[in-house]
Design a binder for these strands. Structure first.
Lengths: 227, 227
DNA sequence: AAGTGTGAAAAGTTTCACAGCG
DNA sequence: CGCTGTGAAACTTTTCACACTT
């Protein structure tokens, strides 16, 4: 039996309007999260040269129920063949496009301290198709000393770099007391999505998406369930 | 290595039964997440010698609506004074107890590679009252070389250590291909909560809680919202 | 026969609105 | 008066069940 797959809480609206052929449909935000999980499972299937998969099998791999998987996919179109299942390759490509991942997405990381520089060494982002193209720190030398390979620039260069490189995504790892002011600068410079590791609720314009990863909070949450 | 995907039905309910004076009440899981956020805000208020706070003020700090805050707190008892607000100190203590954090909670970390050893250096956990008392790695020397200060033990000692030290929480940072088998060992040894950093849906007994922190997935999710 | 797509029902969560208390 | 506590309403998400297609 598998335990709960706990998704982070959403502090904003729960539905997402996506432009459709005709009008707009409402898609649960959680469905978009699950899309990423499905994508990963599909890639694994493709690696194993499976070319068709049923909702039951894929759902089991992703840790959801078959009906939910079918409903999630149906939000984005009709991909399955009745009696047969879903074509792994087509579905995989479609999800990739839906998630806006056709092209390698440039990302910057701000705050290359302990956690920040570890994230840079962590291979996970690159493996999933993101390229962290630069890091920013008030003390670039210190970050380089922590073994960061990519360019580490001083904070002053933040705005020009974002503009010149059309960066839309940022990973924010600065100490909590600077998080809001740095976030303001990022947004002003054109950043549209922030992966925030600071334990603070960031206030940003509504067209900016903030995803919080609060490590202590996750651990704390577990504390409730152990007895 | 890539066996068939086997995952039992996703039976996890979205509600949590907590033992009450008389019977049991159902509490939204998300409310428990928010409890941690409230707790943090309360600590900040306490640091600033505020002794009473209204739902409006606290809710704003936590990024939720006042009514939701009141409802969340009401799940656990009546703490407020009508016309006045909530007593910061009492509320803070109560939440702390509710989250099972009266005592310092021992935690182990398994897999002291890049990400794992960074998490160990990261001060966030300790600051929030968790103590990572030991790390485990197939190559303890390597982890020590990465500057890990706490004891790094070989994987063989996992079971005995967990039993002898009554450890209930584990942070799992091993490479994805080992995640499930290590999780099995953790659970068999008595671990009840796993903070899982591997991009995999872990299968565990229903009485074990798994909290997933999937960094690439969070970034991918952001990708959907930028245009 | 096998398996998708989907309306409808059920379950879960948030918000409202106001009674009631200090 | 101000603010909590809460039933009821509104809303969101999940699950069911089955028509329908290959």
């Amino acid at each position: 039996m598998n335990g709960p797959f706990v998704l982070p809480p959403f502090l904003t609206s729960k539905l997402v309007d996506i432009p459709d052929k005709i009008g707009k449909i409402d898609i649960p935000k959680k469905a978009i999260y699950r899309l990423s999980i499905y994508y990963r499972c599909l890639q694994k299937l493709r690696d194993n040269s499976v070319d068709t998969v049923s909702s039951t099998t894929l759902a089991r791999a992703a840790g959801v129920k078959p009906a939910q998987l079918r409903k999630d996919l149906a939000y984005f179109g009709q991909f399955g063949t009745r009696g047969l299942g879903y074509p792994v390759d087509i579905l995989s490509t479609t999800i990739r496009e839906t998630l806006g991942r056709e092209h390698l997405q440039p990302v910057i990381l701000v705050g290359a301290g302990n956690l920040g520089s570890a994230l840079l060494r962590y291979q996970g982002f690159g493996r999933e198709g993101f390229e962290v193209i630069a890091a920013f720190d008030s003390n670039p030398e210190g970050a380089r000393a922590r073994g960061v390979q990519i360019p580490v620039l001083p904070n002053e260069r933040l705005e020009t770099f974002i503009t010149e490189n059309f960066v839309k995504l940022a990973i924010l790892c600065v100490p909590v007391e600077f998080a809001q002011s740095v976030a303001n600068r990022l947004v002003a410079a054109g950043i549209q999505g922030i992966l925030n590791f600071s334990p603070i609720v960031l206030e940003v314009a509504t067209d900016v998406t903030v995803n919080n990863v609060d490590l202590a909070l996750e651990l704390e949450h577990l504390g409730y369930f152990i007895r």
